[in-house]
Amino acid sequence: MSEIPTELRFATSHEWARLEEDGSVTVGISDHAQNALGDVVYVELPEQGQLVAAQHEAGVVESVKAASDIYAPVGGTVIAINSALDDAPELVNQDPYGAGWFFKMEPADVEELTELLDPEAYAEICEAEEH
């Protein structure tokens, strides 16, 4: 059973989004997702300043045996990327909700966050996948 922090929102494609106090949104992949992928060996991040629409590709996360696209959970502008992942992709496995974050966005419409799954709904999806 994977960890699902209660303050986050989730996409069905396993990204999490956290609304920060400054109004930005931090994005990463869930504990369930990093578990399913296995040891992460590379993360391709979007470029700073890039405009991304909700549910559009904003990067790729690779393990040895798999590669998954990362989709922006909300639309907006990429304002920061976690360049620590270049040299230490294992942070995604070690701390998916902390040091393993992917990028921060300035959301175009913060209301889009409400369209994402709450932790309970996301837990159900994970449970279904684990069986």
Partner: peptide, 12 residues
């Protein structure tokens, strides 16, 4: 670097 290749990445 096999995640670049067709047997993993398929259409991408």
């Amino acid at each position: 670097l096999q995640a670049r290749e067709q047997h993993i990445r398929r259409g991408k």
